[in-house]
């Protein structure tokens, strides 16, 4: 019996080390959403899902890339841009209020129609959802490369308390720690 004792101790040590490692690498109660479309419907869905998860005390990380970054623009903020930046700036939606729909755009009539129908059903507007997301600690991470490509500057984005500017490496780190990761 006395011979087995050191073996047991060694086994416990090894197991503890393995459990520690597993715990460290296990995905946490996080939700990561890659937000790319910049469509009104997808963006509303993004924030509704994010808020639902936040209600469950999940940490929610939204990685905003490509078209979706325009939805974070604040039309009141003006910044200096080069020619291409100005062109992009003029063509991209000036704010969340100008986002198109992925379906039934109907030459621009779709989005206000959806907004009014949603209001009729007492559903929160995208802007109200964004405010609540800020309140519940939903984090927004903005892709710096997309910002460069589209000539969008930090200074023209909305004031959001949990916002930072990252690359794809950070997104990978986020979804490695998440049980769920979707693209919107």
């Amino acid at each position: 019996m006395s011979e087995e004792k050191p073996n047991l101790e060694e086994m416990i040590k090894q197991l503890t080390a393995r459990v520690d490692e597993l715990e460290e690498n296990a995905p946490g109660d996080n939700l990561s959403l890659g937000v790319i479309s910049g469509d009104l419907d997808y963006t509303i869905a993004t924030f509704i899902i994010a808020l639902g998860a936040a209600a469950y005390d999940m940490q929610v990380d939204l990685f905003f890339t490509f078209w979706a970054i325009a939805s974070l623009r604040d039309p009141k903020k003006k910044v200096k841009k080069d020619f291409l930046g100005k062109m992009f700036g003029a063509m991209l939606p000036a704010s969340s209020k100008k986002l198109p729909l992925s379906k039934m755009q109907m030459m621009g009539m779709g989005p206000p129609m959806i907004r009014s129908v949603m209001k009729m059903h007492k559903a929160k507007s995208l802007e109200e959802l964004m405010k609540e997301a800020a309140e519940f600690g939903v984090r927004i991470h903005v892709c710096t490369m997309s910002m460069d490509v589209m000539g969008i500057k930090k200074e023209e984005l909305i004031d959001y308390p949990h916002m930072d500017f990252v690359g794809v490496g950070s997104f990978v780190d986020m979804f490695q720690n998440s049980k769920q990761c979707w693209f919107m």
């Binding site: 892709c143 710096t144 930072d164 500017f165 690359g167 950070s170």
Partner: peptide, 10 residues
Amino acid sequence: DEGTIIDVQR
């Protein structure tokens, strides 16, 4: 690319 800062941190 400014995103490198937080990327390298993580």
